[in-house]
Design a protein around this nucleic acid. Structure first.
Length: 151
DNA sequence: GCCAACGTTGGC
DNA sequence: GCCAACGTTGGC
């Protein structure tokens, strides 16, 4: 079972939104980067995902969710009203994918980015590499352990 | 708010 | 196919 990390702005959709509706699936949509999209396609039901809060006051890993539905065409790409609309995408040949996620748990304390940065063994994790903007990334079992142990 | 780093676009 | 210009990301 693979493991992942996703970045999100908590003002948009953070761990608290999952915690507030623990029995509901929440679509993870709006990813508009090809590399991230390809990782979404690799996600399988049951995979666990670290939820990382970015562009906010408390930056870091805030909780864990899991994949409830594997990749399907992101409906937002077909909606002209949506900020995620993509005129070059068609239902026959959709560019962008979404998955559904579900709450697992909130960490007792957020694991701040600088804590994660200071751990040895995370050199291959895109999150801590300089200038990295990838918003969906794989996390190895070892990296997963290191990150959670830092909390 | 600043700005470095990045991905994408589009002219050539 | 190259690459400059542009818009966005995201930490600080």
């Amino acid at each position: 079972m693979a493991k992942w990390l996703v970045k999100t702005e908590p003002s948009e959709c953070g761990i608290n939104d999952f915690a507030a509706a623990p029995d509901k699936t929440i679509p993870w949509d709006g990813v508009r980067n090809y590399q991230a999209r390809n990782f979404l396609k690799d996600m399988a039901v049951g995979d666990e995902v670290l939820v990382y809060h970015s562009s906010c006051k408390d930056i870091g890993v805030a909780g864990i969710v899991r994949i409830a539905r594997s990749a399907y065409p992101d409906p937002a790409q077909f909606d002209p009203e949506s900020p995620y609309f993509d005129a070059k995408s068609t239902p026959d040949n959709p560019r962008w994918q979404a998955v559904d996620m579900m709450f697992v748990r909130k960490l007792p304390r957020l694991i701040p980015l600088d804590r994660i940065r200071s751990q040895p063994g995370l050199d291959n994790l895109a999150l801590v590499r300089k200038g990295n903007r990838l918003s969906v990334m794989p996390v190895s079992d070892e990296e997963w352990q290191i990150i959670l142990a830092a909390g």
